[in-house]
Amino acid sequence: MKKSILYIIFLILAIAGESSYAQTEPFKGYRIEGDTLIFSFDKRDYKKVTTDEYGSILDFEDLDIKNVVVSGEFNNWSKRKWSMIQIDENRYELKKKISDFTDEFSWEFKFVINNAYWAEPSRKDGNIVRVRKNGYVLPSYNLKMYTAYPNKEGNVTFTLNGYENAKKIVLSGSFNKWNEDLFTMTKTEDCWELTLKIKPGEYQYKFIVDGKWIVDPNNPKKKRNEFNGFNSVINIKVPVKFTLNGFLNAKQVIISGSFNDWSKKKYRMTRTKKGWIDTLMLSGGKHQYKFIVDGKWIIDPDNPVKEYDFHGNINSVCMVR
């Protein structure tokens, strides 16, 4: 729906008629593969469409689909900008780099047929949110996209041992705006667990056991929260490869930066036929760095991204998303 007629609602899924996400249910409308976000539309998943002008509800099968567009908060609800590519008789896709989006944790979006009709998702879809206008709840839903989402092939698994008699355990944290319903954990023979696909970065989280909030008893890392309690903390890191070409006559090259408190000794690079390399596990965000070649500090000659630090030095910059 047009942004002008909506309140932008962030992660409000506890409204009547909206469901939490179970590990076995896929999120509708998109998937994330590596650093690529793929919007996916399958006309067999939809039965109704609506229009802006009169709010009319039409049968999906009555439409002659000529094009499909992704419209959402990320492109100002445009009906024309993000056209999808048809890949077979029923399916359309559009690929975007995750780095093309801001660092928000979620966005509302919808698919537009023929630049005019909004495809209405099912109330059974896990990632939906009610549309609102002027404070009123409308009989329509938007899809919701999250940078963190349950995926069995994800990069981090949360587990909680015990609590065999619990009826429901939910994972809630800064990665989903502390939603109390969205990420329902699955009970196994030994524990409760949930695997997420999540961007690198530091996140705070808690478990909600039958309505009671608890920290992760197996994670000693905690931070005090605004309620004078504590949240568990997890830092998701990814491998980042650094390369310095040339300097083959150097005896030693060290990479130093904001990620290791500018240590002069910690990360020694490995000599190759063309130069020097090292791979570091880094958290999400911006990292400043330099190379130390036989004691001399230099910026990365192959990286055009640079900035000053608080001491007036120029450093190379690496962004991890």
Score class of each variant (00 low, 15 high):
T157R: 15
K28A: 02
R31N: 05
K251R: 10
S232F: 01
N260G: 08
N219A: 15
S83F: 04
N155D: 13
L63S: 03
S172I: 02
L194V: 00
L63I: 12
W178T: 08
T147Q: 04
V253T: 04
L138I: 04
L138E: 04
P220G: 05
N315C: 06
I65D: 06
A16Y: 04
R44F: 09
V129T: 04
T159G: 00
D42F: 06
V317T: 15
E104F: 05
M1L: 07
N219I: 15
V129F: 00
V320M: 14
T159N: 03
I65S: 06
S172M: 07
V68K: 06
L63K: 12
L94T: 11
L6K: 04
G201Q: 02
I214F: 02
S19G: 09
I236Y: 01
N228P: 10
I292N: 02
W82Y: 14
Y117E: 05
R31D: 03
Y30K: 10
I234D: 02
K2Y: 05
S140I: 09
E108A: 14
G284T: 06
S4C: 10
D45G: 05
Y117T: 09
E61S: 15
E202F: 01
A119N: 07
K221N: 10
R268T: 11
V170E: 00
I298C: 07
S78E: 03
Y141G: 00
L171F: 13
G285D: 10
I255F: 01
E120L: 04
G29N: 07
K222V: 11
T279W: 06
F60M: 14
K187Y: 08
S122R: 13
G275N: 06
R321K: 12
H311M: 15
P139W: 05
K241H: 07
C318S: 11
T24C: 14
